[in-house]
């Protein structure tokens, strides 16, 4: 766009023409990484709130009695799979393989939806069968707000990826949009790693033998 006649003889200009940015990282990608660094703090705050109250009130709820670790384990598996498919969509986008992008993105969204359904089922199960609501005790407050915020991230990710899926069917989709899909993918993977942490510190540790 701003390439100019002197690209060949001027080393600075040549660099500019090739990379466009000072570091060679695209602006969008860099901004997304900065956002993810910031998001670490969002989830760090939520996770510490949950853990602190869990530690102060170890007996308020017996999570083992209400958690369904098989379901949550399955959800984790689903989310990891969607992450895998997301990586493949990005790869396909870079190759210019638009069919691949559609299939893999569709798969990612499908798995994401399954995860979200699992979470909705879990919440519903907790509320109706155990009477655990936002306002029944501190555990309810911290648990729902933490996992709910993650769920909102997943839902936004699904909307985002879904929009791209639709976009690939329009003639506005161009090769340079591979970058946008990569950026959306970064977000999606981040949602996945947050779940890796939540799965461990919120769910799995409750099952460690000494915790009774």
């Amino acid at each position: 766009m701003s390439a100019h006649s002197h690209a060949a003889d001027d080393p600075h200009a040549a660099l500019e023409a090739l990379k466009e940015t000072s570091t060679g990282i695209e602006n969008k990608k860099l901004a997304m990484w900065a956002f993810l660094a910031s998001d670490c703090m969002f989830f760090g705050t939520l996770i510490s709130t949950h853990l602190i109250y869990r530690k102060i009130y170890p007996d308020i709820v017996d999570p083992k009695a209400i958690f369904d670790i098989e379901l949550t384990g399955f959800s984790s598996f689903i989310l990891l799979m969607s992450s895998f498919l997301m990586a493949l969509s990005v790869s396909a986008a870079h190759k210019g393989n638009i069919k691949g992008v559609r299939w893999f993105l569709g798969g990612t969204i499908f798995f994401g939806l399954i995860f979200l359904c699992g979470q909705v089922y879990e919440f519903h199960h907790f509320v109706t069968d155990f009477g655990l609501t936002l306002s029944s005790n501190v555990f309810g407050s911290t648990f729902y707000v933490l996992t709910g915020t993650h769920g909102v991230h997943v839902a936004l990710g699904i909307i985002w990826l879904g929009s791209w899926l639709v976009y690939t069917f329009t003639d506005r989709y161009k090769a340079e949009h591979a970058l946008d899909i990569e950026v959306a993918g970064l977000y999606w993977h981040f949602v996945d790693i947050v779940w890796i942490v939540i799965f461990t510190v919120v769910y799995l540790v409750e099952y460690v033998p000494f915790l009774t």
């Binding site: 860099l30 670490c40 703090m41 510490s48």
Partner: peptide
Amino acid sequence: LFMIGMVIAGGTV
């Protein structure tokens, strides 16, 4: 960039 966020978030937790 990401590690700055991770380190500060981890340290804070």
